[in-house]
């Protein structure tokens, strides 16, 4: 899976990674593997679709983690 982190999730972490993960995983599982604090994740997008922590992660997807965001001006 292709993984990308944005904004305040970046310092100390790698922006883009390609991971080969086995087994059915949820987004929550991936945050644990990456050492991310779920409370600091505001928006999850899998293949362009807004997702949630409990959603399953397809094996060959693009998974993006954003910090909390709100509509622009």
């Amino acid at each position: 899976m292709d993984l990308e982190l944005f904004g305040q999730l970046l310092p100390g972490a790698q922006r883009r990674q390609t991971l080969n993960l086995e087994g059915p995983l949820t987004v929550q599982d991936v945050t644990v593997l990456l050492g991310l604090d779920p409370a600091e994740v505001g928006l999850i997008v899998i293949n362009g679709v807004q997702s949630e922590m409990e959603d399953r992660v397809p094996p060959d997807c693009r998974l993006c983690f954003f910090p909390p965001v709100s509509g622009g001006s």
């Binding site: 944005f6 904004g7 928006l43 997008v45 362009g48 993006c64 954003f66 910090p67 965001v69 709100s70 509509g71 622009g72």
Partner: peptide, 8 residues
């Protein structure tokens, strides 16, 4: 801050 997210 939201540019990347809206694009994604």
């Amino acid at each position: 801050a939201i540019t990347a997210a809206v694009n994604e």
